[in-house]
Design a protein around this nucleic acid. Structure first.
Lengths: 228, 228
DNA sequence: TAATAATAATAGTAATACTATCAAAAATAT
DNA sequence: ATATTTTTGATAGTATTACTATTATTATTA
C-alpha cells in the first residue's frame, strides 16, 4: 500500500476535519478501538474523552454526535476500499479477473497487516463495519442524511462494482441489487460465522475469509452467467 | 389465513407473556405502531406508556427493556413467516414450486391485508423488520442472547428454507449461507428501493415486491442450478 | 368474602446526550 | 517578538433516558 494516502469524504459528517489536528486524529483512532470494544450502543463521548485525556465538549466540536462519527468511520472505510479495489484491479486485462480481485478485496479489505493510514487501524475498523455499519442507514434520518451526501461513498463503491459486473455481462439485469446484496453479505456471513453459525456454512475456525470469497464468487458468477 | 392462530416463542425475551393480558396485547400492538413511527432509537417505554394510558413501571413488568421487546417482535415475525410458508407450501408436489412459493412469501409476508392475529398489524411489523431487525443481533450481547435462544425462530426459518433449497439440489454447498443472504436481501432491497435507490434496480414506484421476488428467484436458482 | 395478583401513581437515581461559559494554551499573523 | 485568533480544557448545568422502589388501588381467583 502507498506510503501516504489520503482519503477525503464528500460530505460533512464532521464539524471540524479530524485528520487535520492531533486531537482529531486521537478521536478517530481511539473511537475505533472503543466502538469495537464496547459496541456502538455502549460507546459514549464521555468515555472516549476520558480515554484520550480530553473532554466531552472538545469532542463535540468535531462531531455533532456519535452517530455522525460512525457515519464518518464507515464512509472512510468504503472510500478506502474503493481506492484499494481501484488500485488492485488497475492493470488486470480481463473483466473476470477484475471482478474476482474486487470480490476478494471486498471480503479481505482490512484483514491485512499493513496499515495505509497511521492513525487508523483498518483491521479493527473492519470489525466495526461488520457489526455496526448498517446502523448508519437504518434510522429515521436516512432520507435527510442521504440528501446531505452521507452515503456517497457506499453508493460510489456499489456503482464501481456494478460496472465490473456489467463488464463481464452487460445483459445482467440487476447489477446494483446484486452488488449491494453481496456487499452486505460479505460482512454478514463473517459475522454469522462468529456469532450465529447455524445461519451459514462458513466456519469461523476454517479460513472463513477464503470460504466467504468462494461462496460470493459462486453466487455472483452463477447469477451473471445465467442472463441473456 | 386461519381464523385463530397462536404463535408461541421458544424463549423468554419477555418477563410476563404479553399475549395473555389486555395490557400485554396493548403493549405489543402500540409498540409496533410507535417503533414504526418514531424509529427504534426514539422509541421509549415512557412514550409508549403515555400512548396506551399506562405507566413505565407497568411496561417494565412485561419486558426488561426495549431491546428485548424488539427481539420479541422480530422473533414473532419469523415464527409467523415460518408458519405461513409451511402452510403455503404444504400441498405443492414439486420442490421448485415449494421454493418458489417460499421466496414469494418471504418477500410478501406482511404485505397482505388480512391480519392473522387481531392485535398485531403484520403490515406495520413488516416495516419494522425491514428497518430494525438486524439490530436484534448486531449487539455486544449477541452471544449471550443466542445462548438464551433469542434467535431460534430466525434460525429455524433459515433451516426450513435451506431444506427447500437442498430438495431442489442436494449438491449445492452453501444452502444456509445462500438463504441467510436472501433473507436479509429481501428486506434490504425493499429498504434501498425506498431510501437509497441508487443501490438497487428495484424501483419503489414499480411493483417493488414483485421485482424483488424476480431478482431473488434468479439469484437463488442460478446459484443452486450451477452446482455439481 | 378473603386472599392474591396486577396495575397505577409517584418518586427517585445514575447515566446519557448534549449546551454554555470562561480561562488557558497553542497556533498564526503582523 | 508580540498581538490576535483559534483551539482546547475545565467546569457547570439541563432535559431525557433507562431504569428501580414503594405504596395504594383495582381486578381476579380461591
Amino acid at each position: 500500500m502507498a506510503a501516504s494516502i489520503h482519503i477525503s469524504l464528500n460530505h460533512k459528517s464532521y464539524l471540524r476535519e479530524p485528520e487535520s489536528t492531533e486531537l482529531g486524529r486521537k478521536i478517530i483512532s481511539e473511537s475505533i478501538k472503543m466502538i469495537d470494544a464496547l459496541g456502538f450502543e455502549q460507546f459514549t463521548f464521555k468515555k472516549l474523552a476520558a480515554e484520550i485525556g480530553s473532554t466531552e465538549a472538545s469532542i463535540y466540536r468535531y462531531f455533532e454526535n456519535k452517530h455522525k462519527l460512525l457515519v464518518y468511520l464507515v464512509s472512510w472505510y468504503w472510500a478506502w476500499v474503493d481506492y484499494t479495489v481501484t488500485f488492485q484491479t488497475h492493470n488486470l486485462p480481463d473483466p473476470r479477473q477484475r471482478l474476482d480481485r474486487a470480490l476478494e478485496e471486498l471480503v479481505n479489505a482490512g484483514q491485512e497487516d499493513d496499515p495505509s493510514v497511521a492513525y487508523i487501524d483498518e483491521r479493527i475498523l473492519y470489525r466495526i463495519v461488520m457489526a455496526e455499519s448498517s446502523k448508519v442507514y437504518l434510522t429515521k434520518e436516512v432520507d435527510a442524511e442521504n440528501k446531505e451526501g452521507f452515503f456517497l461513498e457506499i453508493k460510489k463503491f456499489c456503482r464501481h462494482l456494478a460496472q465490473l459486473v456489467l463488464a463481464v455481462n452487460p445483459d445482467y439485469p440487476y447489477p446494483h441489487a446484486l452488488v449491494s446484496t453481496v456487499m452486505e453479505a460479505a460482512h454478514q456471513q463473517l459475522y454469522f460465522a462468529s456469532h450465529l453459525p447455524s445461519l451459514t456454512e462458513i466456519k469461523y475456525s476454517q479460513r472463513p475469509v477464503e470460504e466467504t470469497i468462494q461462496f460470493l464468487k459462486h453466487l455472483v458468477y452463477s447469477a451473471i452467467d445465467n442472463s441473456k
